[in-house]
Design a protein around this nucleic acid. Sequence first.
DNA 1: CGCCCATCCTACAACGTTGTAGACTCGCAG
DNA 2: CTGCGAGTCTACAACGTTGTAGGATGGGCG
Lengths: 338, 338
Amino acid sequence: MAATLKDVALAAGVSIKTVSNVINDYQHIRADTKQRVMEAISELGYSPNLSARSLRSGKTGVIGLAVPELSLSYFAELADSIIKAAERRGLKVLIEQTGGDRAHELEILSSPRLQMTDGLLFSPLGMSNEDAHHLNVNFPLVLLGERIFGGPTDHVTMSNVESARAATAHLLSKGRRRIAVVGGHEGEVIGSAGLRLRGYQQALEDAGIPFDPKLVAYTTFWHRANGATSMRELLESGVEFDAMFGMNDTLALGAMRVLQEAGRRIPDDVAVIGFDDLDEGRYSLPTLSTIDPGRDEIADTAVRVLQERISGREGGAPPREFEARFQVIERESSALPG
Amino acid sequence: MAATLKDVALAAGVSIKTVSNVINDYQHIRADTKQRVMEAISELGYSPNLSARSLRSGKTGVIGLAVPELSLSYFAELADSIIKAAERRGLKVLIEQTGGDRAHELEILSSPRLQMTDGLLFSPLGMSNEDAHHLNVNFPLVLLGERIFGGPTDHVTMSNVESARAATAHLLSKGRRRIAVVGGHEGEVIGSAGLRLRGYQQALEDAGIPFDPKLVAYTTFWHRANGATSMRELLESGVEFDAMFGMNDTLALGAMRVLQEAGRRIPDDVAVIGFDDLDEGRYSLPTLSTIDPGRDEIADTAVRVLQERISGREGGAPPREFEARFQVIERESSALPG
DNA sequence: CGCCCATCCTACAACGTTGTAGACTCGCAG
DNA sequence: CTGCGAGTCTACAACGTTGTAGGATGGGCG
């Protein structure tokens, strides 16, 4: 059906290897030969068979990206950034959704289907540090996010502790003292939730304010619905608070909604800050203060590092850790005289 | 490095073809041979080389999905649905972002890089009906969305006219008579914007209300920011309205935000309905009435139809059109005594 | 004039898989 | 006892590409 090197070679009256050489910009080809080959190529509408090429070369030019779910805005925006970063480097991206499910995540690490890719960017959610040894795989793997530390692979992450601390400090700088937290994960230490909670606690400590466990609402997922439910629980518990730190924007938006239903004014009664800098927060009512976690920097670093591992340039270099720069973004939800 | 059929064959003391047969569940294999091969496979950690397999079979098991941008929530949720639908059918999805740019879209249709896939799901935004002939490609292609009709390929779409008509009728049923529209595309006829505008006009006609062009705000993209800007223009123009139809949820949310800043109460002063049923609209303040466009149905149909084309079962069947069922979802933004 | 080297091109093998054709064994019907 | 078909397995070729080795031509230099 589709034209092959053979067809082009026949049409141009040269050997297939010469055609291959033309395609791969081999130096020593006479101008007129090259010309003839080019013409044959465009006449036949030839384009190389990538399966054959990758069988021969061992490279596919495709990287895998495994995220929990694209319908979670954070991962959609992350995927967007990563696809763009990959494109700049001539790579295509194949996306897997794990649903945040540990079994599914482990399966992906051992799935032969991934052989269609040169390497994997992996953002686990269900796995924990005890699963770190599963990351010992025989293909290039770069970890995204905060579920696992000290693993055997390169790791690109955001400054969770530092930025959560800054977010909390921001609320404190507005004179707030009772800061509720939405999105904790019970018993977690090194996941995003655990780290951000630690940052929160550090900021309190810095300000000499005792940590009140009653101010922390725990949840399983970081969906809008969970933010709403958590806020309802907080309100029902009767605990008092004058600010809220949402562990991500989605949670914060769900919670804000409930706060407003309950008649609390934002930021007057409750100042709110989220985390992720989703586009959504720029048009909510009120607009949402947040942490810009440096998504583009994360994406770019991750793809670069993965490509280095694929090309073998970094050979057996020990696992490296990268942390993106963050930024506090003040919007209406915390706009108060400082 | 990685084990091949040859290695397994050697270890099990059989021919490579027998190993291949075991892997492909060939019937006539003695139980003990099969056993031995299986053991060798797991011992060597063998998994088939997909490049070789697809070179041989001509199939990759991967489909392409080209959308404007994943950071637009609608496309993120669509991609989510499509990846899930593809997974159910044993397919992987490689995502391309076109940025809604016509040149980029045309490039994708002719790009050899797509040879890594068996077919393409394509959601154009920059192309128009005059570009329909570019869709005449020699690989399986299924069109998503509303930019092009009567093209040479299968086409999966939503009932734009009907559902926009229903959305408008919904607002009319609440006694509203001056319904603003946000998201029109100047001069467009067959894009989503054109079709939805037509549905809007039909609903007005049904109700015997004259169409007032001043109520239509035009915009280029369907981002939050555009919804906000359009609403500001409407307000500044001084035109009166008691309801608003946002051509998608994102626009509607951006516009709602501006409405509220301007002191208009929703739904009391202005009833609002959007389009897409994004998760976001369930937690906005107020929650957003919308059209559920049947995203899962679209995704499932699109993947099924593409797979049929790939397998050749539908051979030279003429292009088919599929329209998903929609549903009006009433939430707070239009909750008024009917 | 003869040699070497750079340039240009070709034949062949190999990547790992699967389809095709056929070899061999065995049990059973004729 | 022969022949046949079902069951089990193997050898070989092919998918389309690129690396390797090497052949042919011509120019420059000793």
